[in-house]
Design a protein around this nucleic acid. Structure first.
Lengths: 219, 219, 219, 219
DNA sequence: AATGAATGAGATTTCATTCAT
DNA sequence: CATGAATGAAATCTCATTCAT
């Protein structure tokens, strides 16, 4: 967890100085417990009692750290965005595939694998799309989307440079359809507790879709 | 509102006979008020007091009609599915475009226009995807999805017959990517209260996307 | 059901003329359904909906017949007392045992058998002892008690006349202890859903107790 | 109020730690208010609002202490049993009468006097016999009964040893009739708000009954 | 700084009773 | 006279937030 984010959140009034001064491990535990709670329950159904117990602190402390329940969600949201951004930045720093098609395919696969290994993160991400009582959730959604578009546009632009992708289209439009594809795959993924075989199909379908996108469906 | 659905719901225990016997206009008003409430609030945040007041009935009556809050949501859900199905069946009955590409483009456009004219319906549809505490919402989501896949597969199959669409791909896979595209357009649509210009872009983008899908993005 | 009681109840305002004019079979059915309901539930937990449904009449009619829920209980109570009285009067009219001890033993046995064959009646009787929110239930209890004392005193007096029972005691005191015995046997009976073997024991115990009472427990 | 019982109840989940930590005087006040409420009303008719007001605490606190209304009754029930047991143990520790007949007579008299001085306790005891919706009440009833049988059997056995009571009968059967007698006296006692003269009669009757039991009623 | 006890607003649900048809 | 729709008072229970220790 990046301490700089905490400092910003303190300035915003989302967390208190008391919270900032906590041991990192304690902050991390609170984050994880709260994320889990918000990922699997609607906002109203998340109880501070439960979060406090899960994080082994008192309810009084929790409210002292965040003042309001909404702030707790904002905290989780901000940390989650930052984690998302950093994990993909690390990923791209180590991505040396030459061909854009390979990059895109690996991106799809990596995203699905990542969600597979962080189901709570995935649920939280999905949940935030529809807890639309707060401006907060909208901000979360849009910022994640922006990141994803940015990554995909980059890969598409590169594909155009290498000639793998048509240059007469706007990279944004292509990024859009790619994003649509990956998001719908994610939805399918969420929908079920898929069987291993279905997961294989999903991965298979990811491959089919990307080649289909490249070659077009026109007869 | 189809009275036959009401009868089925009565048999299931979702609504009571008392409700069935209500004047259609009253039933309609309850439907609309409740749909609006569920569309813009999480389940827990929908208050029966509010719905009753909105529909100009007493809370006692509301509970007499539906017994449980969950039943009210189930009622709204079932009527919504039926409305969705019927509106598209009417649409396809009047759709005489010859070329599959035209059909698909018109489908995209019509869907976006429909949501534009029924924002509450759209919000309700989106909301149901993530109120994942109830089996009910999953059933809603899956049944709508099935309808959409069915419509798109039909159009794709037709495109294959006329030679507009490659025959070496499975219709379902193609339907999938088309569905992904339309759903992401919808999401973009939801995300913002888009300015008129952005809406134009969205529609424009829909067109671009479909041609892109046909021709492929490969260089 | 004695129509004269109904007339008295009408004068008291417990039932309405509308009720009085009902077919006897309908009145009987209402009595039975209501008695069952009050026998197995606390007053508050008896729902008029349930009683109406059980008696195959509408809730509106039920309230038209009795005006208030309390009146329904009063009706059941009065009819029950009358039934109790009449059934024992018939019994004593046909009781020709010569010896008082036989009479008393037969009385014990008959009472237990009667409850056995009319469990609802028994439950209602017991229930009325402790639904002490109403003067009504007290009146019920006392009137039944009075009847029982009367019957027992009669048997005891006869025993004194025949010399089977000591004449130096007041019949009421002896009746009292006999009543205590039979009532405690009844309690034991209620307490359990007794196994057949336990029931045998109970009957056996009744015999032991009565002989013990006759011979005394003194060493 | 014995703190050990509170600890046991906390383990069972009947009361919370918060309640346990309350000042004894506050716990006592809650006990008394709740006992009074349950003694004079059916379970459903006891309102938490009323109990909270009577104990000078907020409804929120009451529910925080007991979580459910049933738990409140269970608490009252357990404390009552414990009080009953302890008061009789103290009594028997100080009971030096030599003759069993004296012991039994004093037992009768003391019980009636005790109820006289604790009418609420008596009403609660009676009420529990017929609130038969809960296993709880049955457990209460049976445990009190067991205590009473135990005390009486002890006295009877002693009477057999001293030769005051016939040895050819089972102590349990004799205890049973004694219990029946005392219980019916109690009932008579409850039934009325007896006049002083009637109370005297009752006490007098208790004496008569016990001698009658010793000598038998046989002529 | 940490705790957790106290509070009370607000939610759903039940159901006797009223009353129009 | 029978019906049952409409009502609203009352009940339990949840839980964020306040605040004293």
């Amino acid at each position: 967890m990046d301490e700089n984010i905490i400092i910003i959140l303190e300035k915003r009034g989302t967390v208190t100085a008391t919270f900032r001064k906590l041991e990192p491990s304690k902050k991390q535990k609170i984050f994880e417990t709260a994320r889990e709670a918000f990922a699997f329950n609607t906002f109203e159904n998340v109880s501070l009692d439960h979060v406090a117990a899960g994080a082994s602190i008192s309810k009084g402390s929790l409210i002292q750290y965040f003042a309001k329940k909404e702030n707790l969600l904002e905290f989780v949201s901000e940390i989650s965005i930052d984690n998302y951004r950093r994990s993909w930045e690390e990923y791209f720093a180590r991505e040396f595939a030459v061909r854009a098609t390979d990059r895109i395919r690996r991106y799809f696969q990596t995203q699905l694998d990542t969600w597979e290994n962080d189901k709570t993160g995935f649920r939280f991400y999905m949940k935030m799309h529809y807890e639309n009582d707060f401006n907060l959730t909208r901000s979360f959604t849009e910022r994640i989307l922006q990141l994803r578009r940015h990554y995909l546009s980059g890969m598409v632009t590169r594909g155009m440079e290498t000639g793998e992708i048509r240059r007469d289209l706007e990279p944004e439009t292509i990024a859009f359809i790619l994003l649509a594809a990956i998001r719908d795959l994610e939805s399918a993924y969420l929908a079920g507790n898929l069987s291993p075989k279905e997961k294989l199909n999903l991965s298979d379908r990811a491959m089919k879709i990307s080649s289909m996108l490249f070659d077009g469906i026109g007869g």
